[in-house]
């Protein structure tokens, strides 16, 4: 059987039977949004992205097979591509990856139940997009600064360097752990300072900012910001200015425009 035939069969099966597929919900959009005809969702084979519309809002959905697991790299990439592609044209409230409802009626019910809250959130996010600013320390510059600033680190480094080469590794363990601990503390302190400075520098250019937890030991900054589309150029120039100031010390990257992943979370304790 050719791949093509098999996919065609799966697709017709998926569309014909409510039991073998369910609705993956990407996000909530204003009711006048329609996906382009060729838009495909996640899963294998990827099926068409459509909208389920109720009153003034709609849900971006595509059917997915019930039996297969979700979360392959392609699925994650497709999910983000659909949401980021949408936010360029219209506001969208991303639903967490993996939100799957049994059938069309369930999607309608979801929209009906949350209609006013969804609509209010969409209005709030209209003409706004998210950007993520990520910075990674340039290791050499970071460590040299720490050795300069923290005498104990330099002292430990010297003692380790001067230790005889034939010394068993275990005997320098305490000194190495202590050195690393000091460095780690200094990195954390530097990160806190840099993150605060970045948020403050961009504050006039952004609607709001959220600090994200570091995902790497040498992360300098990891911040999500919400930006008015009208101020996007100014914002980007603001990021460039920070990048220039930090050049040689921090490698800065700007991701976006993105769907507002960080700005739709239901408030929870500790967030």
């Amino acid at each position: 059987m050719s791949t093509r035939t098999r996919e065609a069969e799966q697709e017709s099966e998926a569309q014909g039977s409510e039991q073998s597929t369910a609705y993956f919900v990407y996000g909530v959009v204003p009711g006048d949004v329609t996906p382009t005809e060729e838009a495909r969702g996640l899963g294998d084979p990827p099926l068409a992205v459509t909208t389920v519309t109720r009153s003034e809002i709609g849900a971006l959905v595509s059917e997915v097979p019930l039996d297969g697991p979700l979360g392959e790299p392609d699925d994650l990439v497709a999910y983000q591509r659909i949401l980021d592609g949408t936010v360029i044209e219209a506001p969208v409230l991303p639903l967490r990856f993996g939100t799957v409802l049994a059938d069309r009626e369930s999607v309608e019910r979801l929209l009906d139940d949350g209609h006013d809250a969804f609509l209010a959130a969409l209005n709030e996010l209209d003409d706004r997009t998210e950007f993520i600013i990520r910075g990674r320390y340039v290791e050499r510059a970071l460590l040299e600064q720490i050795l300069e600033d923290v005498p104990e680190a330099a002292r430990l480094r010297d003692s380790l360097r001067d230790a005889p080469d034939d010394l068993p590794e275990q005997s320098t363990m305490d000194a190495r752990v202590r050195l690393g601990e000091i460095v780690n503390q200094a990195v954390e302190a530097t990160r806190t300072t840099d993150t605060g400075n970045l948020i403050a520098a961009l504050e006039p250019l952004t609607v709001t900012a959220i600090e994200r937890p570091p995902t790497h030991e040498q992360d300098a900054v990891h911040v999500a910001v919400l930006v008015d589309n009208a101020r996007r150029r100014k914002f980007e120039r603001g990021v460039e200015a920070v990048e220039k100031r930090w050049r040689g010390r921090v490698e800065l990257r700007l991701l976006g425009p993105l769907a507002p992943y960080d700005f739709v979370a239901v408030p929870q304790a500790g967030q």
Binding site: P73, L76, Q80, L93, A102, L110, V264
Partner: peptide, 27 residues
Amino acid sequence: DVIDTILDKGLVIDAHIAVGVVGIRLL
């Protein structure tokens, strides 16, 4: 970057309130 951006983000639908939430297997 994709994983960092989307993981644990976005609105969570309360499965106890919403009807028809399917517990599909997530990797």
